[in-house]
Design a protein around this nucleic acid. Structure first.
Lengths: 405, 405
DNA sequence: TAGCGATGTGAATCCTGCG
DNA sequence: TCGCAGGATTCACATCGCT
């Protein structure tokens, strides 16, 4: 996504973000019966949380040290368990810098499963009831991760395919080019009211709903962290654009994003740029150090660039009676559908009547069409200056007046 | 792929195909120490095999009744265990015809796992030592299938993503469009010398290596089997083009292809057209009957027609979000029209904002002009080196990058 | 006949807040 | 916690009937 950075490292900037359009977090937590004896609530975020920090250590222990139900979203890029027998060489016999660090070796599937179960369980404990988890992996590990995640009670929402614009070719020509990785998006449980900014994604996608296959380039160029020797610092650094899509679609500004396999801190860098808090857990001090320096240089975007767009669902509810009371429609006036096939009369109490039937704009709309339900706002019109005007337009006027007041 | 069919049903045609380019099967079996006392070898194929037939019954029992190590390739489309809740309706209130058949009902993950383990184990037994398996599934089941398959000793070669050209949308706007399914390609074991026709696929793909993401339409139109009432015979019939890619890439002419969940016989129809033998196992007699009639009408294709037709590529649609992600425009930057009368701010999610209004480049373009619609690509500009540059120009750059990849 | 608009449909874990 | 009611929600094709 091309996050802009300041030239010199500076202390992380605490971002001020309005949380409008959403019920107060504290209220929601109380509604869920969460205890907060060890949490000092402040703007909905427990003060005990080590916000916007990188913690070096084992991620399971670190997560278990956090208060339960305290994190909005988890993004995890766990070790892939790549079983590369020996060195992989290109056709010209040059060595491919494959993932062969010690942390990526697992004796067996059983060991990998135990590891996966441990961190996923710890992750689930630290998630808020309405929280969600993203995991990324390849065919080496993602099937095991996905199955365990289901076993632990996570509720799968989508699997997402990251289609790589520039994948590494298959040098031996013995398989298909491995041109994608898989992400799983899962809510903490089946009942979780997860965050999803449907309209924002649709707006950025030519007004078509976003699909489960995402086409994005690999992390290369200036974005890729390199050491003094020019070698890449981390073997599997993810592109910031990928994290940006995840955070923009599934979290709100001000949310707390936890990454248990922080690496060189892509999650933290993007979270900071987009006005989210992060908690980064990383076992290797070298990666943690690189991440801290990287994030310190990130400049947050202006809030208008990431503030949550008001969705139709979040807009204040307007009773139809308000339109009558405001004089935008008159009692006794006729409403009509766009094809002028059905009509009804507005009553002084904000209901409609058709013959002997009386009911809400929705109920009467459903009745005349013979449907089980109907959105009266987008079905009925009134006549204004010879043209039909949708009730939804008039509702917009009321909302504008409410906002101005 | 549009398999041609004879107008009337006729008996299946036994296809004579050379098995060049591959060591003799018998020799390889002996090398693996396989006994063949119950196999009459004839052209490398055990005479006891029920070739080019559909067997009605439980697939585990049927596979166990076959000689071990006798099948070259298995393609399996098992039940997905969808776990659907109530009805789903489109915005126009029409009812979505859900997969609610008894064969997709499982009491728990444990029961589904036991089922999966049973058929995969039977499949592995019946596979030749150098055989391979393909499975298709969705996020509901594919992770469990993949993990079990690894546990049983299969060796994963690729996961393949079938990107659907025309998926069903997400009608309630609560998730990403579920626009793909996943296939797993796995060899019987780590040492298996599996079949892969690298060059054939490369030639049919503009001389590029075939990637792991395949873009194909759903099975619709004439290809979709329908009953006398016009209703689809099977709820999940797969497109022949998908099977053709699988068989062309991972099997040889004359090979024996087993499908344990035969359904209406897409695997058999494509196998016959491409000069492969099939064995179809199907529990439901209705599906088996439809499959037999369908396959009888299939006319085998001449080998030179086997090459995959290069898929026509229309100009790819580029979301405005991709320009933000590629760094061609920056979140927070201002866009402007050519007469500098209107401006808006680019947001990180690929939408624009003008005052309190947020929407796509098209919606916001229409809004500022007071028009019902607007093409944002040809309306908005960014400033580059003191000059205005149309968004459409930047889109061209992205398209060039996509074409070069 | 060609073209256009209305209609139909696909492996889908598809709402939410208030009383 | 349950029940109720407001009201939000679709994309790419294929087919068919009409002009």
């Amino acid at each position: 996504m091309g996050i802009s950075r300041t030239g010199t490292a500076s202390a992380p900037v605490r971002i001020q973000v309005s949380r409008t359009g959403r019920p107060a977090l504290g209220a929601r937590m109380k509604a869920k019966g969460l205890h907060d004896h060890n949490l000092l609530e402040q703007g909905g975020i427990p003060a005990a949380l080590p916000l916007d920090q990188v913690i070096v250590g084992d991620c399971v222990a670190a997560m278990n040290a956090l208060p339960p139900g305290s994190v909005d979203l988890i993004f995890a890029d766990p070790p892939y368990n790549l079983q590369l027998g020996g060195d992989l060489r290109r056709p010209d016999d040059s060595l491919v810098d494959a993932v062969d660090d010690d942390w990526d070796k697992f004796a067996s599937f059983a060991e990998y499963d135990a590891f996966t179960k441990a961190w996923l369980a710890a992750a689930r404990r630290v998630l808020k009831p309405d929280g969600a988890l993203w995991v990324i992996g390849s065919y080496h590990n993602i099937f095991r991760v996905g199955a365990i995640l289901q076993d632990l009670g996570f509720w799968m929402l989508n699997d997402i395919v990251w289609r790589k614009a520039n994948p590494m070719p298959n040098f031996r020509g013995r398989r298909f080019t491995n041109a994608h990785e898989t992400l799983i998006w899962a809510a903490r449980g089946e009942q979780s009211k997860y965050t999803f900014h449907y309209e924002a994604l649709k707006g950025g996608n030519d007004d078509l709903q976003m699909r489960s296959d995402w086409y994005l380039p690999l992390c290369t160029g200036d974005e890729r962290l390199k050491g003094a020797d020019g070698a890449k610092v981390h073997p599997t650094q993810k592109p910031e654009a990928l994290l940006a899509r995840v955070l923009l679609s599934a979290s709100n500004p001000g949310d707390v994003i936890l990454d248990p396999f922080f690496g060189t801190g892509t999650t933290g860098a993007v979270a900071k740029a987009l006005g989210r808090h992060f908690i980064g857990l990383e076992r290797e001090a070298v990666y943690a150090k690189a991440a801290r320096e990287r994030i310190a240089a990130v400049k947050p975007l202006p809030p208008e660039a990431f503030a949550t767009a008001p969705s139709k669902r979040s807009e204040p509810r307007v009773p139809f009676l308000s339109l009558v009371e405001a004089g935008l429609v008159k009692a006794g006036e006729t409403v009509i559908d766009d094809k002028r096939r059905h009509s009804a009369v507005i009553r002084a109490d904000g209901t409609l009547s058709v013959g002997p039937a009386i009911g809400s704009i929705h109920k009467v709309g459903a009745l005349v069409q013979g449907l089980p339900s109907c959105n009266g706002w987008t079905f009925w019109h009134v006549e204004r200056e010879g043209k039909l005007m949708l009730l939804d337009m008039l509702r917009g006027e009321i909302r504008a007046q409410m906002a101005a007041a």
